[in-house]
Design a protein around this nucleic acid. Sequence first.
DNA 1: ATGTAC
Length: 370
Amino acid sequence: MSPAQSATSASVTVFASPGSWIESSAVAQCHQVATLNGMIHVAGMPDLHPGKGAPIGAAMASTVLYPFLVGSDIGCGIAVYPVRLKKAVPERVAARFPDLDQPVDPASRSGEDIPAGYTEQLGTVGRGNHFVELARVDAVLDGEHAARLGLTTGDLVLIVHSGSRGLGERILRAHTEVHGAGAAADPAAYLAAHDDAVRWGHLNRRLMAERVADAIGAQLGEPVTDVCHNSVEIRDGVYLHRKGAAPGDGHDVLIAGTRGTHSYLVAGHAGPDAGHSVAHGAGRKMSRADALRRGRAKHTVEELRRTAVGSLVVCGDRQLLFEEAPTAYKRIEQVIGDLVSYGLATPIVSTLPVVTYKTADLAPRRGGRR
DNA sequence: ATGTAC
């Protein structure tokens, strides 16, 4: 490329109002990415926060394919499955949740579309910000759209946030060991592996929805959305990388709040300036280390397990409970408000958690009562 | 977010 081009930096637009606090290092990461060879445009979402090398909550368009801009959890996304359940008492539902750290037995699922090659973690949720949540539609915000999706106030849904587990990590590592943060040497080969991980992620979320519905005695419907927020696609002839950003052009997307606040199902209508994308969640306000340190001083384990909205959090890992405390995240209403004010999305319904599953409870329940 | 090393 010419020296003139190498001196040019791609455009950076951050879709956050002045009142929305964005960590300066995350904006700096956007500008760092903008200097990469071939980069055209970087769009930061209102949930933008610093990641490892690349920002989280960004869509990045480039003539060059960079695997590290998708990250290791290729195919991570959020699905919403309507469920029917007679009674949703948090304690009873929480006690019946299956152990989602244990994989499904592929042999028990003959006839299904189980991919060959990587079955050892199928049906598992993973860690970090991943979860499976029984939630209730709290408010209908666009009646016509909600009716089209068959959703109304009081309806129960399963929200599944997970990805491709070790498979995506393996794909990124295979690239990184040779090329580091460089471009994909064989874009077609990377894309083929990437697409496998995206399919694996969708299947993983569906298997978890089925497992949980079975275990809690719920009837499972077809998903109203299942959109992946770590991916790359060829769009307008260039590579559009998304890391913590969901395709927001004509898709309905669940934007996750925290384990103790609302989440929002929105209709995305983002244009090219926004990288055809919308936010994927509330966005971290604190690093995991800060959340752990400050959370221990501020919260009890009990208040994190039984939230202010009356929901239960199933999580036998105390460190994870603090790292994922609602106070470690930005206010989801601020993120949704920014998307609305920039014309990127329209809220359809809000949900509130009933039971959020993070990882199996440690000690067996006492007294034997279920 | 992840598997692996400390």
